[in-house]
Design a protein around this nucleic acid. Structure first.
Lengths: 342, 342
DNA sequence: CTGAAAGCGCTTACAG
DNA sequence: CTGAAAGCGCTTACAG
């Protein structure tokens, strides 16, 4: 640290390092940026000088010079604060933060709750303040993915953005396969009247998991009964309400496949309140393997979404895009986790 | 947008705005920074030019020039990932992000899980990459608060950092008062053998809530029985285990005050498994009023921590510090929320 | 492999 | 109230 006239500490600059090492600033910079065209002797001198001065690069200066910001946005666009209350969110956010930290890239957290927020943030992002965006937004009505894509911003979505086809890179779990596996598991347990509580049907997780459910019904030559299907909203209370609706429409169900653990926790509650036991009267299968799965009694049998891999993959793809590579959609497998509820 | 030779879009600069408005760059900058010493005519011209060009300030250039970063870190130092699994975390993080967004200040999320992380981040922070830090770290063993304070970084902690006295600004809930109110509520419900499951006793929430419990016992002239007190870890499973210990040590309790809702959810589970009904056999009082409170059955009677106010206050204080003002500790009141568990 | 120098886009005394 | 200019700390062709 150098102390300037006013007594405030001024961090050492590349200039201090250069002087200390007896080389030019250009050489220090070259060392900092990969060490190409730096002689071993110069390298050693610079290394020592950096250690001695405690030099840390000034990222603002670097960014101004390179045009890159070396930072990434984690953009959450959920008007309903839905995802934010979901334990999955934490896992994803944490995973992305850690992965980015490994590359020394700070994560800027951005919340777009209103249209105003969205406009402000889109503007901020497209002005080059971040190099890329990790987008968490499930609703198809959300224009932000298209806006960012059109602006040429490197972008990876969590979950397939509906309606954008393959135009936006994304990482998603194998929703349809996972749903199939869960319903087969329910069938294998001897259940025959299997209800389903879906996610919002304007989300891929909503439609794909429903599709998987129908696939297996057909496969087992069981009729598809619309009265057995209720749309939920991925929230706990929504799960409770949906379960009550389902029970009213089809009191004879012996199992229910619920498209998220958080909803499933609500379903178990509602079932208990209606006097049914889980899994004896009604088996419950969830989806996610989030913290909600083990917080209820009985613990949920569920499809594990590999959130660690999802966040790792999102970061990997985003960095690849920033480096100029093309990336596409990635689907990661889910895994059946058998606990007590089914 | 101006299109440069290579076809990539180059965002408009202050120079483009100045040319468009027919003024100098200095005038545009002055307009941007409060509009002092800018004539009404110049102001109008600049406003129009900004609209027309779609100008957005380049924050890297500004930061390089001013020495401020106009960004803030949200630093979470919980080796145990404990807080991250707590629903309170979301509320706090969300609140801070929103408040900062109102001031157009991005939040950088930083996770210090290991000592290595901590060193890296401290270095990053003290190098001027952020203007201040919102610190979430309850453990007294954590050296990060002292390090940042010694480096002169504006800093506001969530919860009183133990051992640092009044040297670090913080925002906390009135833990002791809140605990008192809850135990009085239990007493008012006719309970006399009241157990307690505390938070970790190296945290202020751990010690202060226990102190409040003891206050009211003394006030009611009830003996303090160490067998009635078990230390928990703020986690759900920790709550379950603590409840079993408590039941073994004191099977005759008729109430238990639990220092967090997440633990209390585990406690309710354990109580049910032991065949006790809540609240008939044993009343359960929680703390936080987090999402966990309404996720269990019966819903928890709890002390509400005003997280919205806490995050608002943290941001306000941090911005004040960055502006050069002195700030101190702020204690916010908690509020009894009566539901079904007590 | 290395140094000198231009340039990134802004802010801010300074002179007028 | 306004403009010209220096300077923030870095990177990167360029010439050697």
């Amino acid at each position: 640290m150098t102390t300037s006239a006013n007594g405030r500490r001024r961090p050492p600059t590349i200039h201090d390092v250069a002087r200390e090492a007896g080389v030019s600033r250009g050489t220090v910079s070259r060392f900092l940026n990969g060490g190409h065209y730096v002689s071993p002797a110069a390298r050693r001198a610079v290394e020592a000088a950096i250690r001695k001065t405690g030099y840390v690069v000034n990222r603002h200066a670097r960014s101004l010079s390179t045009g890159r910001s070396d930072s990434v946005a984690f953009l959450l666009t959920e008007p309903q604060e839905k995802f934010f209350e979901d334990p999955n969110f934490n896992v994803l956010l944490r995973g992305c933060t850690e992965r980015l930290a490994q590359h020394d890239i700070p994560l800027l957290l951005m919340l777009a709750a209103s249209d105003d927020d969205r406009r402000r943030l889109t503007r901020y992002i497209t002005s080059g303040h971040v190099d890329g965006v990790l987008l968490v937004s499930s609703h198809s009505g959300d224009p932000v993915a298209a806006e960012l894509r059109d602006a040429g911003i490197p972008l990876v979505a969590c979950g397939k953005p509906l309606g954008l086809g393959s135009k936006v890179s994304y990482v998603a779990a194998a929703d349809r396969d996972g749903a199939q596996e869960m319903v087969r598991h329910l069938l294998a347990g001897g259940r025959r009247r299997i209800g389903m509580i879906t996610g919002p049907l304007d989300t891929p997780g909503g439609t794909d998991r429903l599709a998987g459910y129908r696939d297996v019904l057909a496969e087992a030559e069981l009729p598809y009964d619309p009265a057995l299907v209720v749309e939920g909203d991925y929230r706990r209370t929504g799960g409770e309400q949906a379960a009550r609706r389902l029970l009213a429409q089809a009191p004879d169900i012996d199992a229910v496949f619920v498209a998220s653990d958080l909803m499933a926790a609500g379903v178990v509650n509602a079932l208990h309140q209606s006097g049914r036991s889980v899994p004896d009267d009604i088996a419950v299968g969830g989806f996610d393997d989030s913290a909600a799965a083990t917080a209820v009694t009985p613990a949920l049998t569920t499809m594990r979404q590999p959130y660690d891999r999802i966040s790792a993959e999102m970061v990997r793809m985003l960095l690849a895009q920033i480096a100029g590579e093309d990336t596409a959609g990635v689907i990661l497998p889910t895994e059946l986790v058998v606990r007590d509820s089914a």
